[in-house]
Write a protein that binds this DNA or RNA. Structure first.
Lengths: 101, 101
DNA sequence: CTCTTGCTTAACGATAGTGACAATTATTGC
DNA sequence: GCAATAATTGTCACTATCGTTAAGCAAGAG
């Protein structure tokens, strides 16, 4: 999943999708890349669970891509866990009342 | 920087460093990997600004590795920006009182 | 049915990351 | 100075990734 985010093109796609669902072709044009190349990137994003392709409405030839929430939530959780490193440094008076002390 | 996080071994290192600074050798042993191999991973982590090597105290042969805060803060900021996607979906009544309305 | 559109998959060459072994640098102790 | 330890860098083979061209597949238009 982080491997999917490790590519600038794919991050650009994610930022474009932030403004709403878009078809694959529009994304390819936006990132100045051939359709097959972007299709591969979208495949990686799908594999990482970051985006989802819907069948679309008007024209079933269009594949609408949308951001999925879960992986970002998971990343947030991991990040919070890592950042606890500094939280503990700022104040040792964490509520480790588990032991009653 | 995200490329540095995209590797399981390197994430493991980060999680180990969460518990405090450690010398390179100890990390290599913890991830069951040869010293040169881990040294390369540490190089990537340094290049991504995720960790920092200190000269150490007692034995100057030891290179103590520590987590750096900034990249995680930056990632947090980017993540918040992406997650605003859903925040807007949940309620359009965001405090966009900037315009007075 | 045929043609075009939108997208994905296959095959190919180029590029970069990964780990093992060997060699190098820096530090400690005698 | 010499040996031992801690870590990095060089070189090799292996694998994965990236973008391009060509082909395949589903959905609309005539």
């Amino acid at each position: 999943m982080l491997a999917a985010l490790a590519d600038p093109t794919r991050r650009k796609v994610i930022e474009l999708l932030r403004e709403g669902p878009r078809p694959a072709g529009e994304l390819a044009q936006a990132v100045q890349m051939s359709a097959p190349a972007l299709s591969r990137h979208l495949r990686v994003l799908r594999a990482g669970g970051l985006v989802e392709a819907t069948a679309g409405g008007d024209d079933a030839r269009l594949r609408l891509y949308t951001l999925r929430r879960e992986p970002f939530t998971a990343l947030q959780a991991w990040l919070d866990q890592v950042q606890a490193f500094w939280a503990e440094q700022l104040g040792s008076f964490k509520d480790h009342v588990e032991r009653g002390g």
